[in-house]
Design a protein around this nucleic acid. Structure first.
Lengths: 128, 128
DNA sequence: GCAGGTCTACTACAACTGTCAGAGACAGTC
DNA sequence: GACTGTCTCTGACAGTTGTAGTAGACCTGC
């Protein structure tokens, strides 16, 4: 027996999924081109593999075709994936507590004044 | 050729490293017992493997012995590991921007009033 | 001086990941 | 109708990860 089947997104799969979120439904070639534009050299069949795996894991679907090529679109929402990932990080690092991560972020990362006031506003709305 | 050698912590290795952070230097058996206390059933040799890998990757060292057993201690600091992980998450999800994650956290996770005021105080100190 | 327990070292192995090549299907073109 | 290009499908392979068994070294108590 090995580890439990988690149907979890790997890093490269997530990168592909992000293309679908950011640019809308794409063919294999389309995704590959977006990668190439960003300087990420990757073979056509590699991208195909990731899209197939995304579909197997339920994060994408390919129902339509454009000419001979399948068009893949994201099925999972960006928000749900982000939440899952953040939760996993929280569990791994702080037994699930969110506050330490929030503090760590605000202390160690850079924010513009605008971002800071947005954060402040949000916190004020939550009361306390 | 496969992916670049990243000398990256895996999830289970991180869990072991956390024991070293939380409970101080430990033998293999010590780490295993901490896991068992938390209901994580794992074989002695499995823990040994993780500690060996941690040492190979430079996150831990085993210089002393207690009786016949090596005592492992964390070499990498919790802070540095957390920073690296958070950074990786930021890159994967938001091309490195910190603000969206901060907002996501505050919106979607729960905080006590005390935590909120700590956050507010920190934000106020950063100006803006 | 050997039986039993503990330790490390070595080996193993399946699932997951990143990466891609080759084969076969189909459309357009000369 | 053969050539070219584009697609998908299938297979492959090495590195990582989670998990653990086994072997050999070493004490210790009888």
């Amino acid at each position: 027996m090995a580890r439990k089947a988690r149907e979890q997104l790997s890093e490269a799969e997530l990168a592909v999924l992000r293309v679908l979120w950011d640019f809308g439904p794409q063919t294999v070639r389309g995704v590959m081109e977006r990668f190439h534009e960003r300087g990420r050299r990757v073979a056509y069949t590699t991208v195909l593999t990731f899209l197939v795996r995304l579909e197997q894991k339920g994060f994408a679907v390919s129902d339509k075709k454009v000419g001979p090529a399948f068009v893949y679109r994201a099925k999972a929402s960006r928000e749900s994936v982000v939440r899952t990932r953040v939760r996993a990080l929280l569990d791994q690092l702080y037994d699930g507590a969110a506050a330490p991560l929030a503090l760590q972020l605000i202390e160690n990362e850079r924010f513009t004044d605008e971002e800071l006031s947005k954060l402040r506003k949000l916190i004020d709305e939550l009361g306390g």
